[in-house]
Design a protein around this nucleic acid. Sequence first.
DNA 1: ACAAAAGTGTTGTTTGTACACCCATGC
DNA 2: GCATGGGTGTACAAACAACACTTTTGT
Lengths: 246, 246
Amino acid sequence: MVTMTRTVVLAAPSEQSSDVTRVAVSTVIFTLRRDPAQENPVIALPLVRRTRDPYEGLWALPGGWLDQDESLDDAAARTLAETTGIAPSYLEQLYAFGAVDRSPTRVISIVYWALVRPDEIPSHEAVPAYDAENVTWVDAAHLPPLAFDHTEIVDYALWRLRNKAGYSRIAHGLLPDEFTLAELREVYESILGRRLDPANFRRQVDNSETLIPTDRFRTGSHRPARLYRYNQDVELADRGPLIARP
Amino acid sequence: MVTMTRTVVLAAPSEQSSDVTRVAVSTVIFTLRRDPAQENPVIALPLVRRTRDPYEGLWALPGGWLDQDESLDDAAARTLAETTGIAPSYLEQLYAFGAVDRSPTRVISIVYWALVRPDEIPSHEAVPAYDAENVTWVDAAHLPPLAFDHTEIVDYALWRLRNKAGYSRIAHGLLPDEFTLAELREVYESILGRRLDPANFRRQVDNSETLIPTDRFRTGSHRPARLYRYNQDVELADRGPLIARP
DNA sequence: ACAAAAGTGTTGTTTGTACACCCATGC
DNA sequence: GCATGGGTGTACAAACAACACTTTTGT
């Protein structure tokens, strides 16, 4: 094989690490943010500032190198916790990115995507490594320039989120424990980018058996709205045979 | 495939290969096979016999090591061509597998899945490296014991195939250029594992605008059936923003 | 009382499903 | 002619979408 010759040359001991294919793990973390200027909540995600080359100073997805003795899933959870302190309510592999020129050195990035409920976002003080200077939360619809191919990655993650919202109960992963139907509907409206009929929406989730009504109500505005909680027996999404199920 | 193993060892004399995380690419290739014993065609896939440890002698998915200067997609296409001579009609990334213990040495496998039309399978003579001893096609429903975690991988690929058959025109990737509606229906029946009403099936694909009727007919049995061809303007499946579209 | 959101009812359309039936060919 | 799969029509049910209407609160 042609490749053999080339590999041997490149892999010679005298070369630097740039001759090695390294595996990184990154995560696109979605949450919702109430924007006073907007009617509906807005999809937001955290970015970390790069403190070294390449792309020093630019924003990038949180992530890190895969350790020798940890699985991809573990690496995603670990790097997430280290960089943002987040333990997400939903975490799923998104895609493996491996274009040759996506980084100056050869890096394969296994990218995950996650949903976090607003109440799962730790306060800055609770995260030892938190560095307010170098972490920011941005509106997914108005991304700053990102390092590497991370803009493309976020776009793909958004596509998956919208897609999955159409056929699964994934939006619950963005809401706190108890919520009103209007709040749930607003989540879907934010993700799908269109208005939904409140009456029909109510019936749909009603029939889906995914919600458990509580006897508590959200008061304050007009007629109090019943609070619901998510039925834990129903999976947020069918993830196929990879995930062990009861 | 084997070459790289050796190279890595040579390239890092002070370390064993088990200290390096290597990236492999494998592909689950689906095609259809007419089984005289069965009413409908059967989903089949090619396996290659392992000729060295680990799992020497067992069947495994075709694949190989990722080259330093090729993208993941290119590696999938290349290893596919090298081991089986196949250029598939549909090729998509499936999942990245990275459990620590899935191989004695640390290997991350980026797995693809592919569909090939029966007429795209090259004859053995046309593939220089073809080794009849060490390549076999098996019924996806009756897998022999496989090396590594490949059984799990095939199960996941089958789940994805069935899933995708439900909401896309993916089944066309398994048929030759011209086909009857009954043949197309049989493909869906094989994938989904249940019978479909011929009348309703006809109307569904009719309305979907994905088929172009020809003026040719398949004769031989009873009333001749019109041959259709696939409308190239319609994508087999929506693959999101990762794939450039017109 | 009134505005506004919560929640219910009604109606028409679209989609899916079951199945009866005619059509064209090989035997 | 008759069996068989190709192809059409129809009737019912479920899901979806539009929107009028009632209920319950804050002000």
